[in-house]
Design a binder for these strands. Structure first.
Lengths: 226, 226
DNA sequence: GTATCTTTCAAACGTTCGTTTAACTTCATG
DNA sequence: CATGAAGTTAAACGAACGTTTGAAAGATAC
């Protein structure tokens, strides 16, 4: 285990800062979250953010890296194992989609990996305008996205690579929006409060997987029309 | 025509402020955009934002309202006309999806309705954390979303209403992410620069429609498994 | 116990923020 | 021309921002 993933309550100051920042960045976004809010919630001195993470930008990167490193390593392990077992044969699209998006959604049901908090933060972070965030995400995702794009191309040999890339983009957008759970349009008004977070996540996963696979395997758009 | 939609270059100060704010909010987000940046780009005095729009929040709402009022009115007109012509028969799902999402994408190809700038701003705005933005969007979308949800339920009588709502949510997420064009993961690296904005928008529309319809008509997830 | 390194702390740094004020200009109307 | 509303302006307001500082406190090794 490289870095600690849990927040058992009596952690060091740096972990408490990461936990507080994760929640506040998720709730208010990067710009609207001040270092004073973070240090107050983490019960540390104002200077602690700069002492441990250098700057507010460094804190944001540390918050994302703590979970993303684990997530993308898991994604690569699953794909590696499946491709090794398949001995060069193409994988099923449903398996590839489940490894990439299902791993993220199952992560949200486990509190020791940040639970829903990190899920919602990550979904929102994909549309954060700050340049350093885009750069950071691109470097964190570079390997895993290329691997999954290649796997999808082998799994769907009749679909042009350009189309695969676009549909990966669409799947990412649907997932990012679904896990943020902001629901600014209040489309989802019937949250069952009696259900625990595991059941909710499982139902969302099943629904999202059906949608993503339906979109991924949809007939190609005709290039010339209208 | 209620309010002017174009920016011919020699408009009044309030229109110049809206144009500048639309571009800056799109590029940097709401929080990272200051009233000083807006007034500098619009070539007006610093106090003009408060004079014309009351506050920075009022400016943001005016920026969104200028385009959203037109967009959602158009969406309702198209649905009204089609339902009148159908005389109570359910509409084709592809038609409903095209009216809702296609109208938005076609809007982006026309400079007089804000073009890509408003499209990208709107996609990003759906995930803005500020509470007043969620409230504003909810009120702007309330009517049109309810009408389209009902139309989809009639068009797909075998799909439970709850499932329709979720898939509408997924479609919205895929579309919002696609039109922001932020591409923080640099998935889309092969933008054809020689193609004009109309051709790009048309290709995106065709691709997105295939994906959305594939997801909307996907087989339902089995409720009990694993 | 002394020396050395790490961590914590209150206080302040300079800058930028959204907003307000009051004086000034513009300009159509009587 | 006189009047008053509408628009514009420079200047300033208090508050909050990210970051830095230097000293105090704590921990570790000899």
């Amino acid at each position: 285990m490289g870095q600690p993933l849990s927040s058992s309550g009596n952690d060091g100051p740096d972990i408490r800062i990461l936990d507080a920042a994760e929640r506040l960045f998720m709730e208010h976004g990067y710009e609207a979250t001040s270092t004073r809010m973070v240090t107050r919630d983490a019960a540390v001195n104002l200077a602690a953010v700069n002492y441990y993470f250098g700057s507010k930008e460094g804190l944001m990167q540390a918050v994302l890296r703590r979970r993303l490193d684990w997530l993308n390593r898991e994604r690569l392990h699953l794909l590696d194992a499946a491709e090794t077992e398949a001995r060069g044969a193409p994988l099923k699209p449903s398996l590839i989609v489940d490894y990439f998006f299902g791993t993220l959604l199952r992560m949200g049901a486990r509190p020791e990996t940040g639970g829903q908090t990190f899920q919602r933060l990550l979904g929102r972070t994909h549309t954060e305008p700050a340049a350093f965030i885009s750069t950071f995400l691109a470097s964190e995702y570079a390997d895993v996205v290329n691997r999954y794009k290649s796997a999808l191309c082998r799994a769907l040999p009749d679909v042009p690579r350009e189309e695969i890339v676009w549909r990966f983009h669409f799947m990412l957008g649907a997932t990012a929006y679904a896990i943020t759970g902001t629901d600014s349009l209040q489309l989802i008004t019937d949250w069952k409060m009696e259900e625990d977070v595991q059941v909710q996540a499982q139902k969302l996963l099943a629904r999202l997987m059906s949608f993503l696979l339906g979109g991924l395997r949809a007939p190609l758009p005709q290039s010339r029309s209208a």
